[in-house]
Design a binder for these strands. Structure first.
Lengths: 349, 349
DNA sequence: TAAGTGGATTGATGCGCTTCAATCGGTCGG
DNA sequence: CCGACCGATTGAAGCGCATCAATCCACTTA
């Protein structure tokens, strides 16, 4: 910077002003300085910058699973919103590894980012408490915080489960089954509650079987599908709620393509999340949509609110409502392929 | 830090040593300092740290499209490799926006990251030149650099196209069509060359039609599918190479599910990239696999090499070979659903 | 002509840390 | 008992920048 100042025949203070408060500098001088900057290839040192100012204009976003399109959507929404308020969004993928997650939280903490968005897959209250105790703001995504510890953006996951079950009930299915795993993952727990509520509400005419898939990935889905396919037709549920799109697609694949069980005629299937793959699958998947983009945007809003209001901030939780997207795997009518109200994912707001 | 020093009854130098060179400090003192650190909730300031050292241990990775699973795979591989050498990987998504890409390149440049991994969708030589001129290292992913300007990790995209075409030819298809768009995107250009080479090699018995889809996303694929479906059966190609999985799946959907054209019987389809969705689609897609994880790992290796060897570094290009994954949309035999050699994506190294 | 005015510019200060030469205190050999 | 030696510890210097009180300069007003 001194070099630039020398080259332009000004002081370092003026160079700094050109960079940060152009209005304070006369146009001619500013031009001279800018010329020197580009001639010398000067790059201002962000470390020194944020050392002085005590902050940066970056927001860190820690994602548990970057392979999941819901998380990608959240990142997308957050990115847009962050940009709009002049912040950069830095992404970090923990691949569901809590050690890595703590690493990244600490990294962002040490980097004095403006704030952190965290979309975890496990309880992370320890990490949150740690960096919050240093005065760093955190907004939790798709995971309820311990009450009063931070802001959060959630989807009404109970309603996700409810919508899935309700849709099947409304379309005339009576022998329902709910396939899930990882009840330690909060959204999964919530969805189960919603499923049960809908079934109870329907009265004794509707039965619910709960199937533990053991895991949320495709192989587990295949296994569940095979188990189901081996059953006597009379023992087969006629409506399947599946906790995850990925799992649902895997199950459908076994049922439909491998075992020749007709979906949705014999078994209707509803998934949750409305992932990228949902609409493109062999049997397009009826799924409860999670508004990922909006969640990301809301999270940034909450974060910036908190940063701006300082002491008098009150933590808030934004709960967004899910929406059912009806496709072929569980049409509106009881049997057969109903009208496709397939809303393109690309049109998502 | 002074506070910690006071609390522990030592000097700041000792506190710093506890954090950075524990061996230099007596165990008793170290313990006392650590206790003070956690009691006071001290977090060392990364900005000051890297101001002194002039570097960080973070690597920035700029991705053109985080929605594309190839890019996600590259990020995954890079993350693993970066961790192994004690570096943090920070991700940035440009959503194909060159302005944003430049923003992030500059941000990483100003942050004095160890180096930058860039997976662009357009020529980015200006940005690369800019930050390289500041001495910052860049490795380009899936895009050829201007010769001699930086290291890069590529896939032999010409061979991608060749493998796709060759597979169709070998399975007896003779009226081929190649669907692509965005020839300004280098990998696309390369694939076309490979397709043409394979067709020429096959001699006059095989014809090639080149179809411009106008874009690479699902809606464009639907349009192409509809156009094809309207043709007289005799005018229909019997083998389709499609530049992208997403496009391929969309085309198959139109052809197969909507228009009732049998895939692969009437038209066999081969995609490129072997995305997440490839294996799960209605008609599982035969695709040429791009080794994303390995690309990410190699990129980190090249970057760390370059950082380590300083002046005497010579730029290198690593070209990885693609591999054909045969699924139902274009089985090995000429007609009908061949044996599924569906390699689970999850098993990818 | 002197005092006043305000925009442009200066440069010393300090942000929080790492480093390293200097110092301290204790131990060992002679 | 003295000097040499060594590990542990100290604390000042400086990393590159933003800030802001102080200064400068050109111009206006009385």
């Amino acid at each position: 910077m001194q070099d630039v100042a020398d080259a332009a025949g000004v002081s370092v203070g003026t160079v700094s002003n050109v960079l940060n408060h152009p209005a304070k500098v006369s146009p001619a001088t500013a031009e001279r300085v800018r010329e020197a900057i580009s001639r010398l290839g000067f790059v201002r040192n962000d470390a020194a910058r944020s050392l002085v100012s005590g902050s940066t204009n970056s927001i860190g976003m820690v994602l548990a699973d970057i392979e999941n399109s819901l998380f990608i959507d959240m990142a997308h929404g957050a990115q847009d919103a962050a940009r709009a308020v002049g912040q950069n969004l830095l992404l970090a993928n923990t691949a569901c590894d809590m050690t890595l997650q703590d690493n990244y939280l600490d990294l962002f903490d040490e980097s004095r980012v403006t704030g952190v968005l965290l979309a975890p897959m496990e309880d992370s209250s320890a990490g949150i408490a740690r960096i919050r105790s240093h005065g760093r703001q955190v907004v939790l995504l798709n995971y309820s915080p311990k009450p009063g510890t931070c802001c959060s953006v959630l989807v009404n996951n109970e309603h996700v489960g409810y919508l899935a079950a309700r849709h099947l009930i409304d379309s005339g299915r009576t022998r329902l089954a709910y396939v899930a795993a990882h009840d330690d993952y909060q959204p999964v727990r919530d969805r189960r509650r919603g499923v049960r509520a809908a079934v109870e509400e329907a009265g004794p005419g509707v039965t619910l079987e709960e199937i533990d898939s053991g895991g949320l990935t495709t192989p587990y889905g295949h296994a569940v599908g095979q188990d189901l396919a081996r059953r006597a037709p009379a023992d087969l549920p006629d409506g399947l709620m599946v906790v995850t799109d990925e799992l649902a697609n895997a199950i459908i694949h076994e049922l439909h393509a491998v075992a020749g069980i007709r979906v949705p005629d014999q078994v209707a299937v509803v998934g949750c999340e409305n992932n990228r793959a949902a609409g493109a699958a062999a049997v397009p998947l009826t799924a409860v949509d999670m508004p990922g983009r909006m969640m990301g945007r809301e999270a940034i809003r909450l974060l910036m609110d908190e940063v701006a209001s300082g002491e008098q901030h009150r933590h808030a939780t934004v709960v967004l409502e899910p929406e059912l997207i009806v496709r072929a795997s569980a049409p509106r009518s009881g049997v057969g392929v109903g009208t496709s109200s397939d809303r393109s994912r690309g049109a998502q707001s």
